[in-house]
């Protein structure tokens, strides 16, 4: 029996989760929500994590009904993500690891998403679409690496959605993407937007500039409603993601597709992916907001797998790094 605790703070969510051999014992999270029209900045986000980390940690221990001495390994997000929030969260992890005399492990955030998705859905060897506010990647596993088949060449799809939400002054509670999704359900007039798939990669910045520039005028004139624009934006960016995911699946001969990351809880994206999977005779795996959105349990789960194969990180090497590619990690726990 191994109990792992995971500290996640790479973006605006501070999450601490506890995993015991594949069972989620606790997974509390506190989200830094900014006023409409504003994104979250590194310094303010770090302050948020510093203010809430200890309460969330206590909540996790209480909910899991365990004592610090029951924990076998402390896992924290090493990267990728925003520097200051990552470090603030790692500081708590390093300190409790020493107080409690436990080994510590730095975990790649993207690997956390993938391993949690596999655990929760039971997908064995899926092609993975990892979509969030900071990352957009199509990933498949081959020979001890999660290999990136395609990715964004500029901004992440979630960043594109979030920034359009700011143009419309939508609420950031619970998340800008969620509010875009709700509006999109009521939209029906499609505006053609630049569709930018380049080989296996996607690009969203040109599309975002286009819709940012056009939106105020189109809404003003009554030609399109905000709902129509949210609908058009979602249909376009999701179609691009489905296209590269399908191509990766065809290349790998994969019969499973897993969606992870914050944008992955979007029902329309899941629906579109489901249609594509069905046409190929493949199976779609997706999770809900508890595990799609950044959380501590996913870091504990990936750390649990790493720890199982004998990995730990010496304290002096428990640094954080803003850039940390998914394919840099040697996957020692899969055959």
């Amino acid at each position: 029996m191994v109990i792992a605790i995971g500290f996640e703070g790479s973006a605006n969510k501070l999450g601490i989760g506890i995993m015991k051999d594949g069972v989620v014992l606790a997974n509390p999270r506190h989200t830094y929500i900014t006023p409409p029209g504003q994104g979250f900045l590194p310094r303010d986000t770090a302050k948020h994590h510093q203010a809430h980390a200890l309460d969330v940690l206590q909540e996790a221990l209480d909910e899991a009904k365990i004592k610090p001495e029951d924990i076998d390994v402390i896992c924290y997000t090493k990267g990728p993500g925003m520097g200051a929030p990552l470090v603030s969260t790692a500081i708590v992890a390093r300190t409790v690891a020493q107080l409690w005399q436990k080994p510590i492990l730095g975990v790649n955030h993207c690997i956390g998403h993938i391993e949690m998705g596999r655990l929760i859905t039971g997908a064995d060897n899926p092609t993975v679409l990892y979509v969030s506010g900071g990352n957009t990647q199509v990933i498949a596993y081959l020979e001890q690496r999660y290999r990136i088949f395609g990715e964004t060449i500029d901004i992440a799809v979630g960043n594109c959605l979030d920034r359009f939400a700011r143009v419309l002054k939508l609420s950031n509670d619970p998340s800008p993407g969620y509010n875009i999704e709700q509006l999109a359900k009521k939209g029906n007039k499609f505006l053609e937007l630049p569709y930018a798939v380049k080989g296996m990669d996607v690009s969203f910045s040109g599309l975002l500039s286009y819709i940012e520039e056009k939106a105020p005028g189109l809404i003003e004139s009554g030609e399109y409603t905000p709902e129509d624009l949210c609908f058009s934006l979602q249909e376009t960016v999701f179609a691009m993601l489905i296209e590269i995911t399908e191509r990766a699946m065809a290349h790998c001969g994969s019969q499973e597709v897993l969606i992870v990351g914050g944008v992955g809880c979007n029902q329309r994206l899941q629906e579109m992916m489901g249609i594509m999977a069905e046409e190929r005779g493949a199976k779609l795996y997706a999770t809900d907001d508890r595990f799609c959105i950044d959380n501590g349990a996913m870091i504990a789960q990936a750390g649990w797998e790493m720890f199982r194969t004998g990995q730990t990180t010496p304290l002096q090497e428990t640094t954080c790094t803003q850039r940390f590619r998914t394919d840099e990690v040697e996957v020692t726990w899969r055959s």
Binding site: A46, K47, Q50, A53, L54, L57, Q58, P68, E69, A84, V87, S88, I91, V92, T95, V96, Q98, L99, W100, Q101
Partner: peptide, 23 residues
């Protein structure tokens, strides 16, 4: 300033989740 923020966080963590276990 950053150092003081981090130091404060360490001290608070010790207060709430310490004292240190014996080596």
């Amino acid at each position: 300033n950053t150092f003081f923020d981090h130091l404060g966080l360490v001290v608070q963590t010790m207060e709430r989740f310490g004292p240190p276990r014996l080596k």
